Simulated assay, not measured.
Amino acid sequence: MTRQPPVYILINPDGRAHWGHRLSVAEDTMGHHGIGRTFLTPYSRLRIASPGPAPTRPDQHPPNPYAAVVLAHVAGHSPHNATDPHGPVALYGFDPTNERDNTRPLTTDEQHAITRALAAAGCTTT
């Protein structure tokens, strides 16, 4: 049996990270206040999903320093210049031609880059 590659990695504010195959599962973890999406870098095939109004609701979405480090490493930036994400953050493969949910499986190279970034951030993965 061939194992399908994951579509996303969900990074929680406590450093736990989970690989997954359906982005809707990660979105459920982010809450019911809307989901914000942005590209990791211009022209990137990776996108970030996070709780939409997180900066205005820090009581519900604590800072996520682990995601900040992971995103900076994968984007090729210094963690010192990282953004300040809040709440659980998903990094996922983006496919604009997938009309169902705009996701695609992460490539082997993307998985390796993300795995290295998770280690650099001190995340634990499942």
Rank of each mutant, 00 (worst) to 15 (best):
P58L: 01
E99V: 15
L118W: 11
P13V: 01
P6T: 09
P51D: 05
G122E: 08
T107L: 15
T124M: 05
P51L: 07
A117R: 06
I11W: 07
V25T: 08
T125F: 06
P13C: 00
A49Y: 02
G122V: 14
M30C: 02
T83K: 01
P85V: 11
L118T: 13
D84M: 12
G34M: 13
L40D: 05
A68L: 03
Q4W: 09
T41I: 13
L23C: 08
W19D: 07
E110P: 14
T125P: 05
V7W: 03
D59H: 10
H18D: 10
V7N: 03
G34L: 05
R100C: 08
T126V: 10
L23Q: 12
T41D: 03
M30S: 03
A120Q: 15
E110F: 13
L10M: 13
G76T: 08
P79H: 05
A82D: 03
A68K: 00
N98M: 12
A49Q: 04
T38R: 08
P96K: 00
G87S: 10
L10D: 02
N64T: 03
L71P: 03
T97Y: 13
T124P: 02
H33C: 08
T38D: 06
P53V: 12
N98E: 14
N81E: 07
Q111D: 13
P63Y: 01
T108N: 11
G52H: 13
G34E: 07
R100I: 13
G15H: 04
S78V: 07
A117K: 12
D101Y: 07
P63E: 01
E110S: 12
H18W: 07
G31M: 01
V89K: 06
Y92P: 05
A49R: 04
A54R: 01
H33V: 00
Q4F: 11
Y8A: 07
P51Q: 04
L46D: 07
A26Q: 08
V25S: 04
R100H: 14
P65S: 04
T83I: 09
A54V: 09
A54I: 08
P6D: 12
T107Y: 10
Y43V: 03
H80C: 00
G20A: 04
T126F: 13
S50Y: 06
P53C: 02
F94I: 09
N102K: 13
L10F: 10
P51E: 02
A113K: 14
L106M: 05
R22S: 12
L118Y: 10
G93K: 14
H112N: 15
P63V: 06
H86F: 11
T103L: 01
T108C: 02
L71M: 14
N12A: 09
R3S: 08
A75L: 04
H61V: 11
G76P: 12
P85C: 06
G34D: 06
P79L: 02
L91H: 09
T107Q: 14
A26N: 04
V25I: 14
R3K: 13
L46M: 07
D28W: 09
P53M: 04
V25N: 03
R57S: 10
T41K: 05
P96W: 11
A119W: 09
L106I: 14
E99Q: 15
F94L: 09
A54M: 04
H32D: 15
G52E: 13
Q4D: 04
P13H: 00
R47Q: 15
S44K: 09
G76E: 02
I11T: 11
D59W: 14
T97E: 11
T97R: 11
L23V: 14
A75F: 09
T124S: 06
